[in-house]
């Protein structure tokens, strides 16, 4: 089997409905654990990350390609929604539609240009795309407010009802995160999702089975852009202020690392990754100067301990146990091994 395969997490193919249920369960239960305004604010951020990472999971997980453009797409979504609302007085609900459309188009464009590149060049191309966006956020001062950020973004509102109550804000974001997770799960278990993963596992065999890599990967890219657009718009309406530094290189790397550590390609990856990101944000805030150092150390240790990601590691252990049990059963039943299998 070719060496490319090692990039793909194990056990991707098993039913992962339970992972979807855990994701939904956590999104519903977490605010019940702690429902102070501050806690709800944190949970809202986490739910936004769930959407963002679910989007990244289409490329980095299912398609097995490492994209570093997601932070830039996240920013583009935030600025698209923010600029529409602040500069053009577009109602927030419409801005929430515009942002994902804009980012999807941008992602399709970046995807078309970078997708045929081999791994490392693909990473560099996506990193470049993210960086160009980051620069634009800072330089297009008239639209974006430049390095000082875009201020005065209104809260999200629907039919005149403003989503300012923390619980309402959280509920809305969590609802979108749940819908997003269900759609991602649908794709993961469908022939489209399987073909996408098949392509990552064996390019020639997937081609021979009629799976068009270009179309599939473009779809993955478009989907990741759409989710980043939604997440970005929600971020803009949640923070009501956005500045380029939120969407910088550090963020791009953090997103990828958080997803890989939690289990790229698995349904449970995004929520674990989101918890990790939010946890780091909360705890590192007290030691802001040392944030990069703390994160670096955490990630180094985690990558050493769980090279397959947290979920991947657990699944692999389960798999190993299962195989060992099978082997033992087979040993006992020698010489007629095959009969025992079932």
């Amino acid at each position: 089997m070719s060496s490319r395969l090692s990039a793909l997490p194990r056990s991707l193919g098993r039913t992962n409905s339970w992972e979807l249920w855990i994701t939904i369960g956590l999104l519903l239960l977490l605010p019940m654990l702690m429902a102070t305004d501050y806690a709800l604010h944190i949970w809202t951020r986490m739910a936004i990350y769930v959407i963002l990472l679910t989007g990244l999971n289409f490329i980095n997980g299912m398609a097995g390609m490492i994209s570093l453009a997601q932070a830039g797409f996240f920013g583009l979504g935030a600025y698209a929604a923010g600029i529409a609302a602040v500069r053009f007085d577009v109602p927030p609900v419409l801005a929430l539609v515009i942002a994902p459309v804009v980012v999807t188009l941008a992602a399709l464009l970046v995807g078309m240009m970078s997708m045929r590149l081999k791994e490392i060049y693909f990473k560099m191309a996506t990193l470049g795309a993210g960086f160009v966006l980051f620069l634009l956020f800072g330089r297009m001062v008239e639209l974006t407010g430049g390095p000082n950020g875009l201020v005065g973004i209104p809260p999200f509102s629907l039919f005149g009802f403003e989503f300012t109550e923390p619980i309402v804000k959280y509920g809305f974001v969590a609802l979108l995160a749940i819908i997003g997770a269900i759609v991602a799960h649908n794709l993961l278990v469908s022939r489209t999702g399987r073909a996408l993963r098949a392509y990552g596992a064996s390019e020639p065999a997937a081609l021979a089975a009629g799976a068009s890599p270009f179309k599939l990967r473009l779809l993955a890219f478009g989907m990741s852009g759409f989710y980043a657009g939604v997440a970005g718009a929600l971020e803009a309406f949640d923070s009501r202020f956005i500045s380029p530094s939120t969407f910088d290189f550090m963020m791009a790397v953090l997103l990828v690392v958080a997803l890989v550590l939690s289990g790229a390609g698995r349904m449970i990856g995004p929520i674990l990754g989101a918890l990790l990101l939010t946890g780091i944000e909360v705890f590192a805030a007290d030691y802001a100067d040392y944030e990069p150092l703390i994160m670096g150390v955490i990630f180094l240790i985690a990558i050493q301990l769980f090279p397959r990601g947290l979920a991947g590691e657990l699944a692999a252990r389960r798999e190993d146990r299962r195989e060992r049990a099978k082997r033992e059963a087979a040993e006992q039943a020698k010489p007629d091994q095959e009969v025992v299998r079932a």
Partner: peptide
């Protein structure tokens, strides 16, 4: 359809889903 000289299967996927990939085509 074709098979390959070097084994080309979809790792990370079950045997059932490997075969289903053929059916999807």
């Amino acid at each position: 359809g074709r098979t390959f000289q070097n084994l080309e299967v979809f790792t990370g996927m079950t045997v059932l889903h490997n075969v289903a990939m053929g059916a999807y085509s």
